[in-house]
Write a protein that binds this DNA or RNA. Structure first.
Lengths: 146, 146
DNA sequence: GAAATGTAATTCACGTGTTAATTAAAATCA
DNA sequence: TGATTTTAATTAACACGTGAATTACATTTC
């Protein structure tokens, strides 16, 4: 096990890979004046259905302080609605509004086209394999302890 | 090519994978009061030798505005020195100081131990394969055009 | 050699990442 | 019941990511 050169290391490779993939989506998001994180939150919430904040944060890989700000912004723009959970005054229940759903549907064709283009350039099999390997990495590290 | 669910998509998988890997290094960095990005800049500069700002930014995957701030902070702490390039008053020449080198050397054993533990949990072969696949993804997307 | 163009670095503005502290409400315990 | 502890969400503080604008210096063009 050689000491990893910074160039060939997981942190760098994962960072670069993510940057270069996201770069393809950024023009689309910028045209609609939403951030990458706002888009992620919106999609996760739409796919999962109404969620509490903690659960949404976990599923979207967003930390609670960021989620608070993101929800605030998206509530003002009427893409997400916020309600209280019955029987527990601490919890917040979040849902996608009709306007939020409309935004998702508006962007979906382009989003798919962009993703498919990436997949095509990389190769569909490679793509599936990479997703599997990333999942395995996440699993191998996520047992909290070590 | 199915529309990617947010859960199984490259952006999410790359994000989560990177987060979970970096989480292992954060305690070490926090103990020395340096950020992940400062550490990356320092190591890239140490490995490559003195560089101009633009080149360092590229190699460390840091945008110029961030690099400006990072260099400022690390210059104040004497980990990096800043000089002018002869014959071109616009360019900045950056180098690791002795204190910077000492910091690197102090952290290197732990850094290697952390990385090796990750590699061991994931599997050395898988690890190399994953690095290869990530490099390929970066290459397949980095031809600017598409 | 002066004006126009190009480039490196910085600054600005705003949103997010991160950790720690705080607030509000539940749950637990005495 | 009342006090303590736990939990959900927010707030605070500071650093980075990002795109746009600015500044300073070089290069090109006329």
């Amino acid at each position: 096990m050689l000491p990893p050169s910074t160039r060939r290391s997981l942190p760098m490779a994962l960072l670069r890979a993510r940057e270069i993939v996201m770069a393809r989506f950024r023009p689309m998001l910028a045209r609609h004046d939403i951030t990458e994180q706002q888009w992620r939150v919106l999609r996760v919430l739409a796919e999962a259905g109404p969620l509490e904040a903690t659960e949404l944060a976990k599923q979207a890989s967003i930390l609670p302080p960021s989620l608070t700000r993101i929800i605030k912004a998206m509530e003002e723009r009427k893409f997400i609605s916020r309600g209280r959970v019955k029987d527990d005054g601490r919890r917040t229940r979040l849902a996608v509004t009709a306007a939020g759903q409309a935004l998702i549907e508006e962007l979906t064709p382009e989003r798919i086209a962009i993703y498919d283009a990436i997949e095509k350039r990389y190769g569909a099999e490679q793509h599936q394999k990479l997703l599997d390997m990333l999942e395995r990495l996440i699993l191998s590290e996520s047992s909290e302890g070590r």
